[in-house]
Amino acid sequence: MTISISRLFVLFSLVIFSAHSVSAEVNVYSARKEALIKPILDDFSNQTGIKVNLITGDADALISRIKSEGQFSPADVLISADVGRLVRAKQLGITQANADEVIITNVPAYLRDEELHWTALTLRARPIMYAKDRVDPASLSTMQALTNKEWKNRICIRSSNNIYNQSMISGMIQTQGEAKTLDWAKGLVANFARTPKGGDRDQIKAVVAGECDVAIANTYYLAGMLNADDEATRKTAQQVAVFWPDQDTIGTHVNISGVSIAKYASNLDAAKTLIRFMLTDEAQVWYAETNHEYPVKAGIKWSQTLQDMGTFKAQEVSLAKVGETNAKALMLMDKAGWR
């Protein structure tokens, strides 16, 4: 009798302490920052009545958390700011297929997993940015051309620790092969104006400062600076323009933000509803307007800033493959001496 009472007590405390739920909700593990995702999740809750529980953090740390939580993981949805981590999540077996018509019809095939374990939500492009006052855009053509001698000490780009660079190199390995990519990386490192430091915005600032003449950076950072609250930042950004490289051949490198459903998702329907919502015109417009990312869905109007940067041909290499060669890309950059 005493034993069963103590058992009941244990049971009771477990019920109290465990995060169990009954009402309609969905648990989101997001590698996208809260500020970049919360408003749209709030909209979703308002429209559907489904409560969204959110944790944000490093993608790999969140993936490790889902993995170690195993079959009891509360995670329903994993949102990532790049493709490499979605591919890794799939490889670790913590995701499941989501063969939703909405995804198949709206997302181009190269922007989603073959087995539909993940899909892109938005696109981000990584073009060349140059100083308007010093660089003639006619002197720019391809990424390959940035390794020419004329660009010596003129190029700024952030560290190879950064996933955007890793994905870019990985994309290059896919399109041009490892040997050629290594030569390119070595050539680019030789033309660096400084040891890579800071984020993408810092590269843009360095171009304006005259430390270098061109930078490689994601468009939404420049767009964010162009729409900044303070005038100094806006003025800095206005001195830089975007050049779309490789337009006659493979196109400019693009990465994605994307989403997966966790393997042990307990709120499966809510998770699917959320992803469908992220692909509605409304959500896609919000991303384009607020974060200046390119909508994954065709026919959505871009923000004025993005329109001003011009249209471009995107590199249509399978992002699943790009994710798979991520480690190779990193080791290649180690070899090239790219900090």
Binding site: L11, L14, V15, F17, S18, A19, H20, R65, S68, E69, F72, S73, P74
Partner: peptide
């Protein structure tokens, strides 16, 4: 009965 995660998270 399975309480789910008690310690992690």
């Amino acid at each position: 009965f399975q309480p789910g995660l008690v310690f992690s998270g």
